[in-house]
Amino acid sequence: MTDATVVLIADDHPMVRRALAETLAEVMPVPVRVIEVGSFAEIAPVLERQAVDLMLLDLSMPGMNGYGGLASLRASFPTVPVVMVSANEDPGVIRQAMEFGASGYLPKSTPLAGIGEAIETVLGGGLWFPDALDAPPSPGELSRRVAEFTPQQLRVVLLLAEGKLSKQIAFEMSITEATVKAHLSHVFRKLGVQSRTQAVIAIRQLGLFGPLPD
């Protein structure tokens, strides 16, 4: 039997949580188990006792303290990808969410197909945002960003460029798939890209191939 994907929905409105849960059941190609919380204070205890594959987080939930709540969750639980859910579609707000560590941003007006695409992309270790928020970085800027990679992030990127899947990368690096996905999220953010394909193209443009770091 296929293991269920565990999704934590954090929103202070019960009807919104129910609607999101029903949407997940419709768009997910695998079984999904939903955990619901109605306050920011309930999130950390759940993440401390339960493995979660994805969190859908209300941007304006009481206790979030602006982007402070998102930043604190990313610092405390870096392997759990967070998709912000909000009625606010301001590009500046979306960009801020990305910069503070969100792996995705779902405006509440997003159609069903878009929600499915977003969830699939983020669960696969990618980023999903409604619009391209920045121009593609120049080669010089890309080189500077690559220089900021940690040794493990660089190793993940090189294995990704070889066409390895997350499961294969995890095996070769003796880490979990969740850790691979966390590394990929950081890599995508540093490169200013939103998918594995875009990351590989950027790396190929730099000619970043050779012996893997120890």
Score class of each variant (00 low, 15 high):
A147E: 11
K108A: 11
S143N: 06
R18H: 14
Q205L: 09
R49F: 04
F209H: 15
P91N: 05
E172N: 15
S138L: 12
S166G: 05
P31W: 01
M1I: 15
G124L: 02
K164W: 08
F77E: 03
E89L: 04
S138T: 14
A118Q: 11
E141V: 14
S72R: 10
F209D: 15
T121F: 01
V193P: 05
V7E: 04
D53S: 06
L8H: 06
R145Y: 02
L47I: 04
M1N: 15
P213I: 04
E26L: 13
S185T: 10
V37N: 08
D214F: 06
S76T: 01
M98E: 14
T2H: 14
L191I: 08
V146S: 07
V83D: 00
H186S: 13
S60T: 09
E117M: 11
T110A: 12
A182H: 06
V156R: 08
D58F: 01
V156T: 14
E26W: 13
E120P: 01
T23N: 03
V187C: 07
G125K: 02
M28P: 13
A4I: 06
V83P: 01
P107W: 12
E22N: 08
T23V: 08
P137T: 08
V32A: 15
G163H: 08
F149V: 01
